[in-house]
């Protein structure tokens, strides 16, 4: 398919038998990220789907050390592991925080902001399935407006927009912020390669389809991820030093409704809300595009 190297780290390291649901986006992402990072990696993970589905004690899916930490402490623990490795002379090892949207947007926000401000040499990856899926699909600040969750039922859909975590992280002026999608694996792997090569705090925001939580057909996970990108609901881009922004994929401007209709979690949305979402998406994409053009001039 592509000219990228043959990443087979997971395939050759017994990466089988995890307990994630059929069609889980997180496990597709995790495998490809680990394939790029390779064996010299330590994963630090808080409570969340990834932590639960990695295995049942005393078993683990991961072919690398995987440290389970408290929900709010992901970023601090990752910084701690980094310091320990550096002191024992193992600066070549990548420390990757692997946290869901709840642990990133909500509960771990303070610690994350702290390591960003200190520019700790950590790769922080958020797999975003837009709610607390593992505990029963409660809304998080990553849940989009108009979405159904168990705490924003049909009678009171979520009325607040999704938190713009990428802008928040870019505003910390960290070396690298990127979004990526499992439907665009070449783009994802290229970004992980770039992130791996950079020192300092790197933040990656990965779109992670969740069939049970999104009330979607497991077979549609990649299609939904692709439509999210093509409709500009989840544009693919990267930001260097909080300034230079580069869109890494030219979307084909599919209607947002095409993205919404494959997911039961959006079925209570009114037509007006769907139209509002379309125009909100257009506005934020236009802003990204403007920054992309301006960044080209700055280069």
């Amino acid at each position: 398919m592509s000219d990228t190297p043959d990443y087979d780290f997971c395939a050759s390291h017994d990466f089988y038998g995890h307990t994630a649901c059929p069609g889980c986006g997180e496990k597709i992402l995790y495998r490809h990220v680990l394939d790029v990072l390779g064996p010299e990696t330590v994963v630090v993970a808080p409570a969340g789907c990834a932590a639960v589905t990695d295995g049942v004690f005393p078993h683990s899916l991961s072919p690398v050390p995987y440290l389970h930490v408290a929900f709010g402490a992901t970023a601090s623990a990752a910084a701690g592991v980094r310091a320990g490795l550096d002191m024992s002379g193992r600066e070549n090892v990548t420390v990757m925080a692997w946290a869901g949207d709840g642990a990133t947007f909500d509960i771990g926000m303070g610690a994350l902001s702290a390591i960003a401000e200190r520019n700790e040499n950590v790769l922080y990856v958020c797999y975003d399935n837009e709610a607390y899926m593992n505990t029963g699909m409660q809304r998080s600040s990553a849940t989009p407006r108009g979405c159904w969750t168990t705490t924003t039922p049909a009678s009171r859909l979520k009325s607040e927009p999704k938190k713009d975590i990428d802008a928040i992280m870019a505003a910390h002026r960290i070396p690298y912020v990127a979004t990526a999608s499992p439907a665009f694996l070449d783009d994802l792997k290229a970004k992980v390669e770039r992130a791996k090569a950079i020192r300092g705090l790197r933040f990656m925001h990965l779109f992670s389809p969740c069939p049970p939580g999104w009330k979607s057909d497991p077979a549609d996970s990649i299609t939904i991820a692709r439509l999210a990108v093509e409709s500009n609901v989840f544009p693919l881009y990267e930001v260097y030093e909080g300034e230079r922004l580069r869109l890494t994929y030219q979307s084909s401007s599919v209607a947002v409704s095409d993205y919404l209709k494959l997911q039961g979690r959006f079925k209570y949305m009114s037509e007006q809300e769907a139209e509002d979402m379309q125009s909100a998406v257009e506005r934020s994409y236009a802003a990204l595009k403007l920054r992309h053009e301006k960044s080209k001039v700055c280069l």
Binding site: D14, Y16, G17, H18, T19, D54, G55, V56, F57, P58, H59, S60, L61, Y66
Partner: peptide
């Protein structure tokens, strides 16, 4: 956890 998950035939 020192053992892997491949015993779990999903």
């Amino acid at each position: 956890s020192l053992a892997r998950m491949s015993w779990n035939k999903t």
